[in-house]
């Protein structure tokens, strides 16, 4: 297993740990994505993110990788802090694993700065999702009272 894969593996496992209940055991251990839809989303997204961290940190790529994971976490009952904590989980993993492996590459490519930038982007994304949630909540209420509103609008009582 090469260094990147090892890092990814740890990242997935530790992120999964922050999930509720027994889900954690299933999410991290079940390698078969077929049996574990949420875990699979996690793994795919984290893999994409890790690739970007090593590469150009392309904003749109990161955004599309963040979307599924944050979108899921936003409705998984995570607080905003919790939802982006998975990014900060990466730092200790790198510290643990990087010195043993090809650290030259790692040190140059991924520094805390990049991770911090990612955290900010994740937080933004999370806020976006929360805002969207709030918006669709409002829309729902509005739809429920649609007729009354229109009656009121049309025939001022």
């Amino acid at each position: 297993m090469d260094a990147n894969e090892a890092i990814l593996e740890q990242w997935v496992v530790r992120t999964a740990e922050s999930y509720p209940h027994h889900a954690a055991a299933l999410l991290s251990k079940e390698r078969d994505p077929f049996r574990n839809p949420v875990g699979d989303t996690l793994r795919q997204s984290l893999a994409l993110l890790l690739r970007e961290l090593f590469a150009e940190m392309d904003a749109t790529a990161i955004d599309s990788a963040l979307d599924p994971i944050i979108r899921l976490q936003a409705i998984q009952g995570f607080s905003s802090d919790d939802a982006v904590r998975f990014v900060s989980l990466l730092k200790p993993i790198l510290r643990e694993l990087a010195p043993e492996r090809n650290s030259a590459v790692l040190d140059r490519r991924i520094d805390d700065d990049r991770i911090n930038r990612l955290a900010v982007m994740a937080a933004d994304k999370c806020t976006q999702c929360r805002e969207q949630l709030a918006r669709i909540r409002a829309n729902e209420v509005q739809r429920a009272n649609h007729v009354q509103q229109r009656i009121r609008a049309r025939r001022p009582a």
Binding site: Y19, H22, A23, L26, N36, V38
Partner: peptide
Amino acid sequence: YVGSGDPK
């Protein structure tokens, strides 16, 4: 289950 992954 599919949406939450919660085994219960």
